[in-house]
């Protein structure tokens, strides 16, 4: 032993703090140079967009908002995009959460920010009670969702929200819940989740109501299983799903632009319009290009580590 490290050993022994600093650089610098990345939306994202756009204006959908800022990077963008579509489409929303005690407040704060954006753009405010109600958090999500399979009203028993001019009032007195007792009375159930509540929902409610998801990247493969067996109608997974959704909001599906080009084609659907000119870009457009650099760094790190291992082995055999 001469105390000097071989090249293989050097390649395998970068200090972790150096790696961390490189990661910070790779995930920070590209943020200052936003670029548009070409994209082909996944079929599951197109199906999610189509199912949201298929809900008729004036209808009410169930919306499980089961995320907090722990998955803000993906879930906030997904929530904003789905809500923007529903708001522009004049669809009413019944918000509930089974995943986390903080989730209802986070969702309401996000809606408040979207409302400020709408008011600034001269659009109608999306009002509590008239357009959305927040049913709140359920500590026993499994039992609540299972109970919804029999009756939504019974699962929401005793739940209240703030009604204008009335204060705290039973959610079932809201006009948007009138006549909607069973889960099948709702045209769609949307789940935006940072945890496994998507699974709990499919297990208990699939077949009773069309279900669509926006899940984190981790849950993407598992959710793909439900999608392939047609237990859900569509889903967006992670940042890629969000970027798909933002692109679809701009381009629509089978929807020719002014020069007649169709950006997203699908043999499943007729023309579905987008919302060109409105605020469609969000976290997807802001983060997706930077993700390429972070992923590139990871691949590079794995390659360097493996080259180091092979060089060390080759050196050992000599």
């Amino acid at each position: 032993m001469n105390g000097q490290k071989s090249l293989g050993e050097v390649l395998q022994s970068l200090p972790k703090q150096v790696l961390y600093i490189i990661l910070i650089v790779f995930t920070s610098v590209p943020l200052f140079f936003p670029v548009k990345v070409p994209n082909q939306p996944l079929e599951s994202s197109v199906d999610l967009y189509a199912s949201l756009m298929a809900v008729k204006p004036g209808e009410t959908v169930l919306f499980a908002s089961d995320w907090t800022n722990s998955t803000r990077g993906e879930s906030l963008g997904q929530f904003n995009s789905v809500m923007r579509i529903l708001m522009r489409h004049n669809v009413n929303v019944v918000l509930y959460s089974t995943g986390d005690a903080q989730a209802p407040r986070v969702a309401q704060d996000a809606i408040a920010k979207l409302n400020e954006e709408r008011i600034a753009a001269g659009q109608k405010e999306y009002k509590r009670w008239e357009n959305f109600v927040s049913v709140g958090f359920f500590s026993n999500g499994e039992a609540t969702i299972n109970g919804m399979g029999t009756s939504v009203r019974s699962s929401f028993n005793g739940k209240k929200d703030f009604a204008p001019g009335r204060g705290l009032t039973d959610v079932y007195e809201s006009p948007i819940l009138k006549g909607r007792e069973k889960v099948s009375d709702f045209p769609l159930l949307i789940v935006v989740t940072g945890s496994k509540t998507s699974n709990i929902t499919v297990e208990r409610l699939s077949g009773k109501v069309p279900i669509a998801f926006a899940v984190t990247g981790v849950m993407g493969p598992e959710t793909g299983n439900f999608y392939q067996s047609q237990q859900i109608v569509g889903f967006a997974s992670g940042l890629k799903g969000l970027y798909d959704l933002e692109g679809l909001m701009e381009d629509g599906v089978n929807n020719p632009d002014k020069s007649g080009n169709i950006a997203v084609k699908s043999s499943k659907y007729g023309p579905i319009p987008g919302f060109p000119g409105e605020k469609n870009d969000g976290q997807g457009k802001r983060y997706y290009p930077t993700l390429h650099f972070a992923v590139g760094l990871l691949i590079l790190a794995v390659i360097i580590g493996n080259i180091g291992m092979f060089l060390s082995r080759a050196g050992g055999r000599k």
Binding site: G73, E74, V218, L291
Partner: peptide, 9 residues
């Protein structure tokens, strides 16, 4: 991909 997205955020 998810973890990197959270860091980018």
């Amino acid at each position: 991909l998810m973890r990197f997205t959270l860091l980018i955020d």
